[in-house]
Computed example of a mutant assay.
Amino acid sequence: MILLLSCTVAFAAPPKPRPYSGFGVVVLGRGDLLVLYAEPGVQRVGELSAERIPALAAEGGEVAVAADARKGEWVRLAYDEAGREGWVELKRSWELCSWEEYLPGRSVRLYGGLKRGLYLLSPTPGEGKGSVSLVPGQTVRVAEVAGEWARSERPSGWFRWRDGDRRLTIVPLPPLR
């Protein structure tokens, strides 16, 4: 019996990694077809429906995805959970915005399992930490963003919305704009 239980734990799937933040967010239509390229306009990789790529948030007919890089009218997106990336040409119906534009006014949930320091609120954006701590999984509303720091309305203070590896420490919640 113990052997059976230990095998089940050993074969449990590891948690999927937190997504990279990139430079901003692309808001796509849920039914949009993405034509992926290895480089902008060169070496077509394949096609994928927008609803099948790893989304930061989804609401109604829209899907928000982190954009890793930009070259003219092309953006690079992660198109699967393994982090493989491809370039897509921006469509007029898509909205591309920076994190500074996307996060203010939005509710976010904090990832669990992060280093303790990422949950501490600071009175100003920077490394000086305060004594108030957020709770893993807690939902807060972002009032403003300054670099890698976001100001929470309640409790009031600044926290890191992405870590030093540029991975998100938060999950943006619907509704989308």
Score class of each variant (00 low, 15 high):
residue 8 T to G: 01
residue 24 G to S: 12
residue 44 R to A: 12
residue 45 V to I: 15
residue 6 S to K: 07
residue 99 W to D: 04
residue 35 V to W: 09
residue 158 W to V: 14
residue 64 A to C: 13
residue 154 R to T: 03
residue 89 E to I: 06
residue 70 R to M: 07
residue 158 W to I: 13
residue 158 W to Q: 15
residue 172 P to S: 10
residue 121 L to N: 05
residue 42 V to T: 13
residue 61 G to R: 02
residue 155 P to N: 03
residue 22 G to P: 02
residue 97 C to W: 14
residue 77 L to A: 06
residue 36 L to C: 10
residue 120 L to S: 00
residue 130 G to F: 06
residue 68 D to V: 06
residue 67 A to C: 07
residue 165 D to E: 14
residue 109 R to V: 07
residue 156 S to D: 11
residue 121 L to E: 05
residue 175 P to H: 04
residue 91 K to L: 13
residue 2 I to L: 12
residue 18 R to Q: 10
residue 149 W to G: 08
residue 86 G to E: 05
residue 101 E to D: 13
residue 129 K to I: 03
residue 137 G to N: 14
residue 60 G to N: 10
residue 53 I to E: 03
residue 159 F to N: 01
residue 5 L to D: 05
residue 90 L to C: 06
residue 162 R to V: 12
residue 56 L to Y: 01
residue 32 D to P: 01
residue 123 P to C: 02
residue 141 R to W: 02
residue 71 K to A: 07
residue 172 P to W: 00
residue 59 E to I: 01
residue 18 R to S: 13
residue 53 I to V: 13
residue 105 G to L: 13
residue 120 L to V: 00
residue 133 S to T: 05
residue 87 W to H: 03
residue 117 G to L: 10
residue 93 S to T: 14
residue 75 V to T: 02
residue 48 L to C: 10
residue 36 L to R: 07
residue 39 E to M: 10
residue 31 G to H: 09
residue 177 R to F: 12
residue 74 W to R: 04
residue 118 L to P: 00
residue 170 I to L: 15
residue 157 G to S: 06
residue 154 R to I: 00
residue 71 K to G: 00
residue 2 I to S: 03
residue 149 W to Y: 15
residue 134 L to Q: 01
residue 150 A to R: 01
residue 31 G to N: 14
residue 55 A to V: 05
residue 128 G to T: 04
residue 175 P to G: 08
residue 38 A to R: 15
residue 73 E to I: 08
residue 103 L to C: 12
residue 168 L to I: 10
residue 66 A to D: 07
residue 106 R to Y: 08
residue 138 Q to N: 08
residue 80 D to M: 00
residue 95 E to N: 13
residue 115 K to P: 03
residue 34 L to K: 02
residue 134 L to R: 02
residue 139 T to P: 00
residue 140 V to C: 09
residue 141 R to L: 10
residue 41 G to V: 11
residue 136 P to E: 05
residue 37 Y to K: 03
residue 46 G to F: 07
residue 37 Y to H: 08
residue 146 A to I: 15
residue 48 L to Y: 11
residue 118 L to H: 07
residue 113 G to K: 09
residue 133 S to E: 08
residue 135 V to H: 00
residue 57 A to P: 06
residue 1 M to W: 00
residue 78 A to K: 01
residue 151 R to Q: 14
residue 23 F to K: 05
residue 103 L to F: 13
residue 29 G to P: 02
residue 164 G to F: 05
residue 129 K to G: 03
residue 140 V to Y: 11
residue 96 L to N: 05
residue 156 S to K: 07
residue 96 L to F: 03
residue 86 G to R: 01
residue 89 E to G: 10
residue 156 S to V: 02
residue 124 T to Q: 13
residue 25 V to S: 13
residue 128 G to L: 11
residue 171 V to E: 14
residue 97 C to P: 04
residue 144 E to Q: 11
residue 66 A to E: 09
residue 85 E to Q: 12
residue 143 A to S: 15
residue 79 Y to A: 05
residue 35 V to F: 06
residue 74 W to S: 09
residue 140 V to K: 08
residue 95 E to M: 14
residue 128 G to W: 06
residue 36 L to D: 06
residue 110 L to M: 15
residue 50 A to M: 04
residue 83 G to F: 14
residue 131 S to M: 04
residue 146 A to Y: 15
residue 20 Y to D: 14
residue 102 Y to I: 14
residue 147 G to P: 08
residue 15 P to G: 08
residue 39 E to R: 07
residue 112 G to N: 03
residue 133 S to F: 01
